[in-house]
Design a protein around this nucleic acid. Structure first.
Lengths: 209, 209, 209, 209
DNA sequence: TATGAATGAGGGTTCATTCAT
DNA sequence: GATGAATGAACCCTCATTCAT
């Protein structure tokens, strides 16, 4: 019986519940009744604000997309050279994928459902990073023998993979430590490996010397 | 219609349709009515053979799991040394993920739906590969500075990533050539990079010292 | 809990209830729940047999259309000359419109809802009668000064009108007698008037002079 | 939007949209949301002015009824004898039914929905015309062999019928000319036929001989 | 007067499942 | 083994209406 007449507030409550629900169960696995139950707002009112279940989903996706954009912009500002910027963006990406379970899962659902709403932001990231890599290759700081896209795939792929399988690895392989510790350890090794990957194959004279 | 009393044949037809449907639309996005329409077998009969929608899904997952196992076994046999075996398995994995859209997608749906049916096979692969890597590290043929699990993540992660994003990359970045060509080119660079990644850091001066 | 597994029987029961309901309340004024309640057959089962509310409505319209056709055919057979046939058809039409409240009303609803399902049969009647009239005009038995279509309008229009307004007339003008008696009296006068209408203007003196 | 505090203007806009909507789709086929969309006035405000959907419908019916009355009064005034008055009323009725699609259709919906709001005016017309006919019969100018009500039915019925079926006739029978022309042609023949119908059977010589 | 938030009932339809045949 | 009749719950959505602002 929420008689508060607070449209904006209501929408926020609804979208929070929807985000969680869609993340956990996907679009067709989530019913409006469920969301309604979760946030205590009647189905009718939800529909009043978002027109349809699709509309609500879209709103969720758009919010997530904006969040991704913000993350990117934040990661890009303040860096003094391509190296630093690339590093920042990588770290931010890792943090985002690794920590934001909701984004993480909804992105997968959306992919499977052939939704394109989230793709723009992710593609922007890829393009930006590809540009940075190209520049770094020109400066001789990144191995120029490989296409930036492949390098990116080698870079971001493991992050996604780790995020998706880490729990299963922990369980199946009996890894010790908390997930936080595992994450830290992985990140450390990962960074070293990325460096190894990018490092130009030196000639006689070492360039990093 | 089909009054052939051919249980086995019917089951095959049903499971093929179910596989395609679940791959495309996920479990809750797929209705028995849809599957029934796709394969021309009545819902009643489908249920007769598989007890429930869940049962049918399970059967699909199990078949996929068996297929994965077979792929693995085949990749492992005939190799004469860990290097070759590892290479074979990697190539097979790439082929499997890259080409089997159905497995690919169902594995993702299943992951999101917290299903464990497909995980066993994948974990077995990981464990096996980890074992091989450890051995190769002992033999000094793989950089021993990193844990096998991290190396694996760096190895398989890009395959998944590439499979998931390649089409979007092609579209968004305007890549030229057919997808087959792109795949080939990627695979070539990928292999080189994997080698670079694994290669022990040689040289007179010890690197971890 | 009708566990009779009698598809055809069920469909009949449903369509009878639907006919009555649609006649009384129109398409959008009738809910499946109402029909379901009226005939004791679950909404689910109704939809199982007729796919949709529209499908059910269509089935009703088609049945009525067939009924109309049958009436026509029956009226046309057995007559020995155009006069008799025309008379028969007129009488049958009167009886049909006058007595079949369900057809009567559904035809009106359907007209308002821009449905064409019932029009074919009615148009067929008009065309047939127009043909008969033309022939009778050639034989000099019907006034040739008017187009058959106008004559038909003058003929059938009053039937529809009478059917629609008779109750109201009875009430508002305080007519005595049962509706049956009123009907009989009207029909008698109506027939005389039709004859007067059709009768060629004879005599030595030209009629249009 | 419209913060003009113009109650009367608002009501006019609403009722115009409502009239059109109810004419096209009937009462239960029309939603307040639809009317609101059509005229750009919020559902809340519509309800504020008309209390309920029923109230709005009633207002529409009353307006139409008043329009009918006006038409009648106008047709009745200025005539110098029963003949002229009857002629005027007939012509007005024809014009009204023939041209006012909205009245035409709403009257049918209302009839089917057992609404009585429009009946009073129509009954008044009938009564008035019946009175005129009686008088004309007394004066020997109209065939006294038939009851005025039957004569009226023969007179007005064809108008309704023509209005309802003319388009279908045009299409199905391939009539040439615009609808306007068809209307004119029909009206001309109709008037002659009405005259023929009313004309007292004269003369010493028996007419049916 | 005017809006739009909020409600709750009911709309048609889909769904997985059971069961008689 | 195979069909389709039958069910009942749930689904998304529309509806008329109320009420705070």
């Amino acid at each position: 019986m929420r008689k508060q007449r607070d449209g904006a507030g209501t929408k926020e409550i609804v979208i929070a519940a929807a985000k969680a629900a869609f993340a956990e169960r996907g679009f067709s696995g989530t019913s409006l009744a469920y969301i309604s139950r979760q946030c205590g707002i009647s189905e009718g009112l939800i529909l009043h604000h978002y027109k349809s279940k699709q509309g609500l989903y879209q709103a969720v996706l758009e919010e997530l997309s904006v969040g991704y954009d913000d993350m990117l912009v934040q990661a890009m500002t303040g860096a003094e050279n391509p190296d630093e910027m690339a590093g920042n963006m990588l770290a931010a990406t890792f943090r985002f994928w690794s920590e934001d379970r909701v984004y993480n899962r909804i992105a997968m659902w959306a992919y499977l459902e052939n939704r394109t709403e989230l793709i723009a932001a992710e593609t922007a990231l890829t393009a930006k990073l590809a540009g940075l890599l190209t520049e770094m290759q020109k400066q001789g700081r990144v191995d120029a023998a490989f296409s930036p896209l492949t390098l990116l795939t080698m870079t971001i792929g493991p992050i996604h993979f780790w995020t998706r399988y880490r729990e299963q690895f922990k369980r199946a392989l009996g890894l010790e430590g908390t997930m936080d510790e595992l994450n830290r350890r992985f990140l450390q090794e990962y960074m070293s490996l990325i460096e190894k990957l990018y490092r130009p194959v030196t000639g006689s004279a070492g360039e990093t010397s």
